[in-house]
C-alpha cells in the first residue's frame, strides 16, 4: 500500500498539471502568509526606529539598528505596562479559576441529574449566547454602577465570569462522553456526590478544561471594550486598555505606539509558540458548540 502511494506521488511531479498545482499551492501560501504578517512586521520595523529616523525615512525602510529598544522602554513606562501586566494576570487567573469551577459544577449537575427545570436552564444559557455583548452593555453598565462594581478589579472579574457560555457547553459536551457507570460504581463504594465531582469528574474533564482555558484565556487577555468601560482609573488598566494611553496627544507618534502594541502581543505570541497544538484543537472544539 505505502509503496503504491509513493510511486503515485513521484509520478505526479512529472505531469504538467501537478507542477502547475504545486506552483499555485506555494504561491498562495506565500502570498497570504505575507499578507498576514505584513501589518505586524511593519509595526516591528517602526518600533525600532528613533524619532529622527521615523520622521525622515519611509515606514518600510529597515531601522538603522535592531538594538534600539528606547521606544519599548518609553512605551512601557508611559503606559505603565508593568502595572497593566499585573492587572491582566490577576484578572485572567481569577476569571479562569472561577469560571472553570462554576462551569464544571454546573455541567456536572445538568448532565447527571434529571430534575424539573433542567431543560429550561440549558435553554436559558443557550439563549444567553445569542445576545451580543456590546448590546448588553447598554444596560449592564447601569447594573454595574448600581452594584458599585465600576472601577474595581473584582467587579470586572465577576462580570467576566458571568458572561461566559461557551465553556459551559464544552463541559456539558465532554461530560456526555464520560460513562455514568463510573458514578454508579463510586456510589456503591459509598462516595458522596461531591467526591464524585471532585475526585472523578474534574480529573476526567482535564482536556475540556484545557480547551476552555485557551478559548477564554485569549478572550480575557484581549478584552478591551468592557475593561475600558468599567476600569477607567489608570492604575486599573489591563494590557489591552493600557494601549488607550496612546490615543490623543500621542496619536501620531507611531514609533512609540508600535512598540506598545508589540509589547502587548508578546505574551500571546510566546504562548502561541509554546502550545500551538492545544490552541488549534481548542479552536476546533469550541466551534462544535454552534
Amino acid at each position: 500500500m505505502r509503496t503504491h502511494v509513493a510511486v503515485q506521488k513521484r509520478r505526479k511531479h512529472y505531469t504538467v498539471g501537478g507542477i502547475i498545482w504545486l506552483f499555485v499551492e506555494y504561491a498562495s501560501l506565500i502570498f497570504f502568509g505575507f499578507c498576514a504578517v505584513l501589518p505586524v512586521v511593519s509595526c516591528v520595523i517602526t518600533a525600532f526606529k528613533t524619532e529622527e529616523e521615523y520622521q525622515s525615512t519611509n515606514v518600510m525602510t529597515l531601522p538603522e539598528s535592531w538594538l534600539n529598544f528606547d521606544n519599548f522602554i518609553r512605551a512601557f513606562e508611559t503606559a505603565d505596562m508593568g502595572r497593566a501586566f499585573l492587572n491582566s494576570l490577576i484578572v485572567m487567573v481569577s476569571v479562569l479559576l472561577i469560571s472553570i469551577i462554576i462551569g464544571t459544577q454546573l455541567a456536572y449537575v445538568l448532565n447527571r441529574f434529571q430534575f424539573p427545570g433542567n431543560g429550561l436552564i440549558r435553554n436559558l444559557f443557550l439563549f444567553a449566547s445569542l445576545l451580543p455583548a456590546v448590546a448588553m452593555q447598554v444596560t449592564v453598565y447601569n447594573i454595574m454602577t448600581a452594584l458599585g462594581f465600576v472601577n474595581h478589579l473584582y467587579g470586572y472579574i465577576i462580570m467576566m465570569c458571568g458572561t461566559d457560555v461557551i465553556s459551559i457547553y464544552i463541559f456539558i459536551q465532554f461530560m456526555e462522553n464520560i460513562p455514568t457507570s463510573l458514578d454508579e460504581s463510586a456510589i456503591i463504594d459509598g462516595a458522596s456526590y461531591w467526591t464524585i465531582y471532585w475526585k472523578i469528574m474534574l480529573p476526567l474533564l482535564k482536556p475540556a478544561i484545557v480547551t476552555s482555558c485557551i478559548l477564554k484565556g485569549v478572550g480575557v487577555y484581549n478584552e478591551y471594550y468592557c475593561a475600558n468601560l468599567y476600569l477607567q482609573r489608570p492604575e486599573l488598566h489591563t494590557i489591552a486598555t493600557s494601549l488607550y494611553t496612546f490615543v490623543g496627544p500621542m496619536g501620531s507618534q507611531y514609533n512609540l505606539i508600535c512598540a506598545g502594541v508589540i509589547i502587548s502581543l508578546l505574551p500571546a505570541l510566546i504562548v502561541f509558540i509554546l502550545c500551538q497544538k492545544q490552541i488549534y484543537s481548542g479552536i476546533a472544539a469550541g466551534a462544535v458548540k454552534g
Partner: peptide, 18 residues
C-alpha cells in the same frame, strides 16, 4: 495566518490606523 486571531482588538486598531 492564524496568529492575527490572537491579537487584541485595540492593538488591531492601532496597527491598521498605521
Amino acid at each position: 495566518m492564524f496568529f492575527p486571531y490572537l491579537i487584541s482588538g485595540i492593538a488591531i486598531g492601532f496597527i491598521f490606523k498605521f
